[in-house]
Amino acid sequence: MPGFLKLKQIRGQHLAAVVLFLLGFLLMAVPALAQDVPVTDDDVNAVAKDLFCPVCESTPLDVCPTQACADWRELIRQQLSEGSTPEEVQAYFARQYGDGVLANPPKRGYTLILWALPVVAVVLGGVFFSRYMRNLRVSAADEVDEELEEGVMETAVPAAVKPIAQDDYKSKLEEELRNR
């Protein structure tokens, strides 16, 4: 019985060693496989178009003919072939060369305002426009009220004047006038 247990233990150890070996092999193989990811010029340019040339002002990296941009495109190709995603490549460039190389500013810090500004402008524009329209309506209603009030004073027959406005404010106003 003890001999059987020992044999079982040895077999278990062998099995564990084999599993560890296979795991190790897989771990080594993953980066090697990742390096074989085929990268086309289109793949490189898809990332490069969202980056700016470090030398020429506001020139996208995919169309820039300078040596600096050629080097950067080669770096993009290398990183993509190593399995990096386009987002990871862009994050690397931003870290290494600053946010200024990104065609789309990151949505954080000061640049967040640039993203928020159009939304805020539309909202504020809406608020101002609605206030303007309301003011127009109120001033028009005030003019009508003034005319109505003058008419009431002249005729001194409030009941004869049918209320034009329908809201509570006008009803109360008329009630007060009637009570005078």
Partner: peptide
């Protein structure tokens, strides 16, 4: 109050933009 709030937002945004 609404008018003050709107102006505070507008001036705040302009100040931050100017600073940037």
């Amino acid at each position: 109050y609404l008018s003050i709030a709107v102006w505070v937002i507008v001036l705040g945004l302009l100040a931050v933009l100017g600073w940037g």
